[in-house]
Nucleic acid binder design. Structure first.
Lengths: 116, 116
DNA sequence: ACTAATATATAAACATACTATGTATAAACA
DNA sequence: TGTTTATACATAGTATGTTTATATATTAGT
């Protein structure tokens, strides 16, 4: 999808936090997860991803540690913090509202009484 | 909802086109429709709205005409064009993909096989 | 008269995404 | 062994769109 980045702007941080809610992960793997889950329709460019990780670290919503995978390759792993867990929990409520509102608007199934 | 603007960024143009798919409208009314449909959770600030209208006019996705409502008040109405109808039709397919992907990610109900 | 609601619009500041680029290691293959 | 591809991390500069703040004007209610 072209311009997918413009659509998911604002959601990037929560996509990352959602993944890290399931397991610790590293940048490249997270980009592959998004590619896989979206069936290649949505793409997070590396720049966007790494800048978002920096932002989340700065906000203390995630922490990081160096590790090695089974093959001995260096990986920079990220882990969600209690503050990050709180943020994603609150966001999930917002997402329900956003999803319902946008679906109503885009689907045209809303009523609005025009008085004039 | 705080920061709702950051979430709906990128969707603004399509929110407007969706409303104009139902009836011709004017800026202030559209902002009220969004407020009403979102139950005040999502807000399009005036600046965002009028700049989006300008952008859509420039892209020839909408046209405008001056009119008066029942009370004789001047209103600047906007109308969707065939080009605008085509754009919203295509976007609706994208929305299904975006909605499914984000809901999977946020809900955590996705599977990903980690090989290493 | 005064205040709130309705209505349109722009400038400056801010936030975040994208393109392009650079670096490095490991795996696959000829 | 040399080359290519995939994996992996990171930053500078640019583009785009939102927000805050501000300006202007009309209508409705008290």
């Amino acid at each position: 999808m072209t311009n997918s980045g413009e659509f998911i702007r604002g959601f990037t941080d929560y996509i990352i936090l959602s993944i890290l809610s399931k397991f610790d992960s590293y940048g490249y793997e997270m980009s592959k997860i998004i590619e896989y889950v979206s069936k290649s329709n949505i793409q997070l460019t590396e720049a966007t991803l790494y800048i978002a990780l920096k932002r989340l670290l700065n906000d203390e919503k995630i922490t990081t540690y160096s590790g090695k995978n089974k093959k001995g390759m260096s990986r920079r792993y990220y882990q969600i913090t209690p503050k990050g867990k709180k943020a994603i929990k609150e966001f999930r409520k917002d997402w329900v509202l956003i999803e319902n509102t946008l679906s109503s608007l885009f689907g045209g199934n809303f009523e609005y009484y025009r008085e004039s």
